[in-house]
Write a protein that binds this DNA or RNA. Structure first.
Lengths: 153, 153
DNA sequence: CAAAATTAAATTGTGCGCAACTAAAAACGC
DNA sequence: GCGTTTTTAGTTGCGCACAATTTAATTTTG
């Protein structure tokens, strides 16, 4: 191992870590969604799946995973629970039996009517933040994600 | 339920959600730490616990939890795994048997020498980002966490 | 066409997070 | 002092995340 220059004093303090700020903020955000989602009987990751399907119904697990950055190991059981709750249906594509088509049921589509209240429930708590600042924050996070995922920038 | 004004068109798209940007960035960050932590035999939350203990050894589960925003339901099994790995010791406080004092072992203290390489491994990937921008991002995330946690601002 | 390679989803196993609950010890109130 | 309340960890149960592997269907190749 090559010896390198020392880190600045206190560089390893928890309260200076970007990673911890992210980790804590994400958990706080999930908690903020929890009451509103509880009323719909959804978990937070299930809600994210529905956000995708409400925009574009009838997707393969692969396509859902690409948008959510999740693999079948996470999605398969999650989708089975959504299916058991009567929110989505899971059917093999007859043209390619490897593929599973995930489709909203009538109930799943009806749930969309309640999404605005979920959105507002969290938006209210951020009411004192500038929307522009929040949009900028989101953009920075997307850029950070790209960088961390080995974006060849 | 009171009827409210409509949400802006596309407000519910996944790629416009701050919550998803956070969620994705946190998972990308955890992944970025994974290779370096694997070499130490640590998980990411275990590393966070050690960051705290390296700053201040001999803490109660309560105090650790306060800094990490985690409860005993998460920390108890995590600390038991760190104990099994010989990294921390867990002992009841003789003055108050409710309390559990978590202390680094010699091995746990030695691990600190390898922390800078973990830090650098991730810092390298962010090398093209301005340190000031990253610091600002961290501060915004801390503020966001406070707001979401019902900070009476 | 048959073997090999690729693709898509499912499965297995581990470790969080967190809500809800329990157990035990200490502090408090009268 | 003694019953009540509070505090601190631990336990239980569920649902992610994700690495690693498996299974099965399709595509590619020789």
């Amino acid at each position: 191992m090559a010896k390198r220059s020392e880190l600045p004093e206190g560089a390893l303090r928890l309260d200076r870590q970007l990673c911890f700020a992210l980790y804590a903020a994400t958990r706080a955000m999930t908690q903020a969604y929890h009451p509103a989602l509880d009323a719909l009987g959804l978990t937070y990751p299930q809600y994210l799946v529905l956000l995708v399907l409400w925009e574009e119904d009838d997707l393969m697990v692969k396509e859902l995973g690409a948008q959510l950055m999740l693999d079948s190991g996470t999605l398969t059981p999650l989708l089975k629970r959504l299916e058991a709750a009567g929110i989505v249906s899971r059917r093999r594509d007859p043209d390619d039996e490897r593929r599973l088509r995930v489709t909203l049921t009538a109930h799943g589509r009806r749930l969309r009517a309640k999404a605005p209240s979920v959105y507002r429930c969290v938006a209210e708590r951020l009411a004192d933040q500038s929307p522009r600042e929040l949009a900028k924050l989101r953009e920075q996070l997307v850029a950070l994600t790209q960088t961390l995922k080995g974006d060849p920038s």
